[in-house]
Simulated assay, not measured.
Amino acid sequence: MIRGPRERFGPAVAVVAVALLLVTVVGAWPPLVAVESGSMEPAVERGDLVVVTAVDRFPWSEPVGSDADDPPTRLDGAGDVVVFTSPVDPRRPILHRVAFRVTAGEDWTDRADPDLLDGADCTDIATCPAPYDGYVTYGDANGEYDQSAGIAPVVHERLIHAKALVAIPHLGHFQLAVDAAVARFGVVPAGVGILVAVSLVSGTGAFLVGRVREGWRTRNDRKGGRRPPR
């Protein structure tokens, strides 16, 4: 049986359509972020897929920290969880929780949780006093602020790309595998390999579905006393 383009590439087209719909709704690209580390465990683990939305998307406003009087609840914790770029390693966006907002020149350790400073004070931290308005952030599992640990400086608002909404367990492993393939083989070879794999998987799925339907039709014909067509 010859499979047409629809049967071969139908699932791939459906995936692209869902991705475009997500971009339209959440206003961020990519709308799904695969988690590479365990810094946000136990709510978010490595290999989870996180749905994100643009920071300025209705009804959101600027990120709200865990120190707010009535902070939003995000991913089993208080305060917004955001995706931002760190100048320390711009190639790897960070998904961490907002602790509080700071203003330029502020000694923000006065408002910090001592347990998350690991004994440091303002003189020990490169971005204290705050060099500009921004946010202090942390990973739930790290036990220390990103700024005191040297993971990132005070996060400027222009470096924040999105807010995290919900985590889907384990579905991020595919994206991590794709990223690894692109890093190793390049965009074009990895893209060709992915298209071939999608075609094979979708074609195999269509073939199996067709066989199941044919089997059910044959069985029903036999029950009705009719001979199956040759």
Rank of each mutant, 00 (worst) to 15 (best):
219 R>D: 11
187 V>H: 04
192 V>P: 01
196 V>P: 03
218 T>R: 11
210 G>V: 04
197 A>P: 00
190 A>G: 04
195 L>I: 05
206 A>I: 07
197 A>L: 15
198 V>F: 13
193 G>F: 06
205 G>C: 04
210 G>R: 05
220 N>D: 15
205 G>L: 12
216 W>L: 15
215 G>M: 04
209 V>Q: 11
217 R>H: 13
221 D>Y: 08
217 R>W: 08
197 A>R: 05
221 D>I: 05
198 V>G: 09
212 V>C: 03
191 G>E: 07
204 T>Y: 01
203 G>D: 02
205 G>V: 13
212 V>Q: 11
199 S>M: 13
215 G>D: 12
214 E>T: 11
206 A>F: 03
215 G>S: 08
203 G>N: 08
188 V>N: 00
197 A>G: 13
210 G>Y: 12
204 T>D: 03
212 V>E: 12
188 V>G: 00
189 P>N: 00
206 A>Y: 04
215 G>T: 08
214 E>M: 01
216 W>C: 08
221 D>W: 02
209 V>T: 05
196 V>D: 01
209 V>C: 05
190 A>H: 06
205 G>K: 07
221 D>S: 15
191 G>T: 11
211 R>G: 13
211 R>Q: 07
185 F>P: 00
206 A>P: 00
215 G>N: 09
201 V>C: 03
190 A>C: 10
206 A>N: 04
186 G>M: 02
218 T>Q: 10
219 R>C: 02
218 T>K: 07
204 T>L: 15
207 F>T: 12
192 V>Q: 02
204 T>V: 13
203 G>Q: 05
205 G>R: 09
188 V>E: 13
203 G>K: 07
209 V>K: 11
218 T>P: 01
212 V>A: 15
195 L>R: 01
193 G>H: 11
187 V>A: 14
193 G>Q: 04
213 R>Q: 11
188 V>R: 02
212 V>W: 14
218 T>D: 07
208 L>W: 12
192 V>I: 14
196 V>Q: 06
211 R>I: 05
214 E>R: 10
195 L>W: 08
216 W>F: 15
206 A>V: 05
208 L>G: 02
202 S>G: 15
192 V>S: 07
214 E>W: 13
209 V>L: 11
188 V>I: 14
195 L>E: 02
211 R>K: 15
202 S>D: 06
211 R>P: 06
194 I>W: 13
210 G>A: 09
215 G>V: 01
221 D>V: 05
198 V>Q: 07
190 A>I: 04
221 D>E: 15
205 G>W: 15
186 G>W: 09
218 T>Y: 06
213 R>P: 07
204 T>S: 15
214 E>K: 11
215 G>A: 12
194 I>E: 01
204 T>N: 04
209 V>G: 09
